[in-house]
Design a protein around this nucleic acid. Structure first.
Lengths: 112, 112
DNA sequence: ACATTGCGTTTCGATATTCGAAACGATAGG
DNA sequence: CCTATCGTTTCGAATATCGAAACGCAATGT
């Protein structure tokens, strides 16, 4: 796993440290957005989480969980499961427009 | 370049064809979200676009432009520059909450 | 005590993606 | 012509991801 993007720090593809650049780096990694999306319904174990993500490879799952953890978006609950932190939940809400957009995209590509 | 995600078609990490899955695949590729973000201000040439993205590698730039083009999000103008399509602009708007969220993230990580 | 099951996690070789620099062809101006 | 600039392609090297197997551990049943 390479360097974990944090707002205020230089990241892959940007030396400015602007939060948006760190966010685009962190969330532009494979499965990152998907993990946030699949965590939207609350705590879940690692193996179940992997199932929900169509069997994504376990190594990448743990890389992402570690990254999202260090970035403060995901945390472990008392029973060892994973869940969104407060700021992570806010991100979950922030990608809702993206989800809604995907329906419009669908409609624009395949006339219904 | 591998298969380009389209809503209604199976994609990497999901066989359901749900638009949101295609979107997460397409936008979860390196530089994809960043390109949409950097195109928000209108038409721009390939070389300038590459500059704005902190010198991302040209090969990936053209891979992404081709993907986003086939996905209907980016198009070329009369002078050969690149710009967001109508649905692409809608995506640009849909990621605004993400941009705003990144400020909150910054605040939550580095107390101000 | 012992095997079994299910879990979180790590490892590692194979594959795919990205990087980065160089080059190509076209076009416009001096 | 020559030079400069642009859009684009190429290709070997570096990095990220995949996928299956395995490890350690706790709970459960025999």
């Amino acid at each position: 796993m390479s360097l974990v993007p944090k707002p205020g720090k230089p990241v892959r593809g940007s030396t400015t440290g602007r939060p948006v650049m760190a966010a685009l780096d962190l969330l532009g990694r494979r499965w990152a957005l998907r993990l946030i999306w699949e965590l939207r319904d609350g705590s879940i174990g690692a193996r179940d989480l992997r199932q929900r993500c169509d069997g994504m490879s376990s190594s990448v799952l743990y890389d992402r969980l570690k990254e999202l953890g260090e970035a403060g978006l995901v945390e472990k609950d008392d029973e060892g499961g994973y869940r969104l932190s407060e700021i992570g939940s806010a991100l979950g809400a922030a990608i809702l427009p993206l989800i809604r957009w995907s329906s419009d995209w669908d409609a624009s590509q395949n006339r219904h």
